[in-house]
Design a protein around this nucleic acid. Structure first.
Length: 556
RNA sequence: UGCCCGAUAGUAUAAAGGUAGUACGACGGUUUUUGGUACCGUUUGUCUAGGUUCGAAUCCUGGUCGGGCAACCA
């Protein structure tokens, strides 16, 4: 049975193209990042789309770095982008660079000059901007527009030879200064930049603009479906014009709406500000929407792929509820994360009728969601345990299923205990809870006949290890920080990071692996942070568990 | 004021002239040695005014609203 799933508008186009035998049914996409920053989850949407389509239609996908601006691009970014795409789970057909085509692009420009479709302009940036007109007023012709092809050829060659300074001359396409599409008003094709390029070094001092590199690169690579975001819609006319005038392979561009997610920002510019102005600790800060940040936070590649699959692809502006991302995350982690116990805010529980100085080994499945539990771990038990402060209430609220005077709970994987007494310090804080345990209620061999509503987690005092635990919350207090009245940084949630210097954890968590998800039972999903050292473990909270009790409490 | 996109529950996304569906969320319930998971149920929608048609979310026209377009950025 094939799963009936409706097609998005791009899949419809592709299936139509295949049906019509366009390009012999060949599908070739590309993902074209500019190596001037780190990838974020918005890029993940584009990656999943372009790579996913090729996978679905038996095609190929190129990874092509759009590196036409030597002043902002660096090899460091190339490396991080490759790592992120790989981590997401995709393999590119070819690793390519727009800069590979600089010679070809130069020849394309010469072709257009010879056809009388491009000219050298000596105007200043201000003059040229002036000539562009406005969206409602036509532009005016440049005084250099009527130069002969020979003169243009000579000047262009001299530009390439380095005879002119930065900004002294540009090459422009000769199209239509009164076009309603601003991009058709004699757009710039080449500018002079005496700058070192991360790939071509000092070979060039003229560099093509995006509009004269991107479509041509697609064409050179015989890309059939070139996908990009909506802001490039008005560039499409130019994209097609160059391809037509150059008489080269007709790649087609299609545009979709970029991803937005509530309570976060998604532009490189804004993310860069967060880093530079110290609101976060780097590009891979676990609160960032960068792929490196999400990865460090403990997100799985599978959950991000699933998310990108569920949000769909369309042309209308959208802002996805972050709860969908969290749903996809929990769905994946629930199936894969190993369960462990950890007490983040401890108080001591003393089992008064448990023999002094004795202990026993209990057992727990690593993963109850998996067949066979993925193995069993040993959990030491004893007379004194750490439990969560919030699991005891001196005056229990209604429907509170945990500990309080006279109340009984199950200790996970262990015994049922009954609260007999508690101890407070001078300040009135609970410091100890005294319980009696029911020996016949041991997990797996319970003959007590007692049923309790609540189960709480614990860690044995004698065997507990400690770890720093970093609890993350959303970085912004409002749904759409980029779209509020004031600057987006004014909406930062100042409590987005809470550090617990020393939580008690199960001892075997000392062998936790980077990149693995753990569920601290009843507390959430956590993962080891790269800041960890042998003597000091650090865990990041990836996401909490759904907490209907917290919701109940909030309702009052 | 010009051109180009777009408009379906709270948020996304389907329905290709013929029963407005799905997911997340919210709400309620069942199960549960995680107040998790799983399962069940409830809830809310076609921007607007006309037109074409036996029949319109879908086609046409006008309007409204939202977004984009005037970097030697991509």
């Amino acid at each position: 049975m094939s799963e009936e799933r409706s097609l998005n508008f791009i899949e419809e186009i592709i299936e139509e193209d295949i049906k019509n035998g366009l390009n012999g049914g060949r599908i070739h996409t590309r993902f074209p990042p500019e190596p001037n920053g780190y990838l974020h989850i918005g890029h993940a949407k584009a990656i999943c789309l372009s790579f996913g389509l090729a996978l679905k239609y038996n095609g190929q996908t190129n990874l092509r770095f759009d590196d036409t601006n030597p002043e902002t691009e660096e090899t460091e970014y190339v490396e991080s982008i490759k790592e992120d795409v790989k981590w997401l789970g995709f393999e590119w057909q070819n690793e390519l660079y727009a800069s590979n085509y600089f010679d070809q692009l130069y020849e394309f420009a010469v072709t257009l000059i010879k056809k009388g479709l491009a000219y050298i302009d000596d105007g200043t940036p201000e003059e040229i901007a002036q000539q562009k007109g406005t969206p409602t007023e036509p532009g005016t012709l440049s005084p250099y527009r009527s130069r002969s092809a020979d003169e243009n050829l000579r000047l262009f060659s001299e530009m390439k030879e380095g005879k002119y300074k930065d900004g002294e001359k540009v090459l422009r396409a000769k199209i239509d200064m009164s076009s309603p599409n601003m991009h058709m008003r004699d757009p710039l094709m080449y500018r002079i930049r005496h700058a070192h390029h991360h790939r071509t070094g000092d070979k060039w001092c003229i560099y093509p603009m995006y509009d004269f590199a991107h479509g041509q690169s697609d064409s050179i690579e015989q890309i059939t479906h070139s996908l990009c975001t909506l802001e490039f819609v008005s560039h499409r006319e130019l994209y097609d014009w160059f391809i037509e005038q150059l008489e080269i392979f007709p790649s087609k561009q299609y545009e979709f709406a970029r991803l937005n997610i509530t309570y976060t920002v998604m532009s490189k510019r804004k993310l860069l500000q967060l880093v530079n102005e110290g609101f976060v600790n780097g590009w891979d800060d676990p609160r960032m929407s960068t792929l490196s940040g999400l990865r460090r936070r403990g997100f799985t590649a599978a959950s991000i792929r699933e998310f990108c699959d569920r949000i769909g692809v369309a042309k209308r502006e959208n802002i996805i509820d972050v709860s969908l991302l969290e749903f996809c995350l929990r769905e994946d982690l629930n199936k894969t994360a190993w369960r462990r116990m950890a007490v983040l805010d401890p108080i001591k529980l003393v089992i008064t009728n448990y023999p002094d100085g004795q202990g026993e080994i209990l057992h727990g499945e690593n993963n109850p969601e998996a067949e066979g539990g993925e193995g069993i771990r040993e959990i030491p038990f004893g007379k004194e345990l750490w439990i969560e402060r919030e699991d005891f209430m001196e005056n229990p609220a209604k429907k509170y299923f945990r500990l309080g005077p006279g109340l009984m709970v199950r200790l996970k994987h262990a015994y049922i205990v009954k609260c007999e007494d508690f101890v407070k310090d001078e300040a009135g804080n609970i410091t100890e809870v005294h319980c009696s345990y029911i020996p016949e209620s041991k997990s797996g061999e319970d003959t007590s006949g007692i049923h309790v509503k609540g189960t709480i987690h614990w860690v044995n005092v004698e065997h507990a290890a400690t770890a720093e635990v970093r609890l993350y919350d959303r970085l912004f207090r409002v749904e759409d920080p980029g779209n509020e009245e004031r600057d987006f940084k004014e909406y930062i949630n100042t409590e987005s990071l809470q550090v617990i210097p020393s939580a008690y954890i199960e001892k075997d968590l000392a062998t936790a692996e980077l990149g693995r998800g753990y569920q601290f039972i009843r507390k959430g999903y956590f993962t080891l942070d790269k800041d960890s050292a042998a003597e000091k473990l650090v865990f990041n909270r990836t996401v909490t568990l759904k907490d209907t009790w917290a919701k109940e409490v909030k309702k009052g």
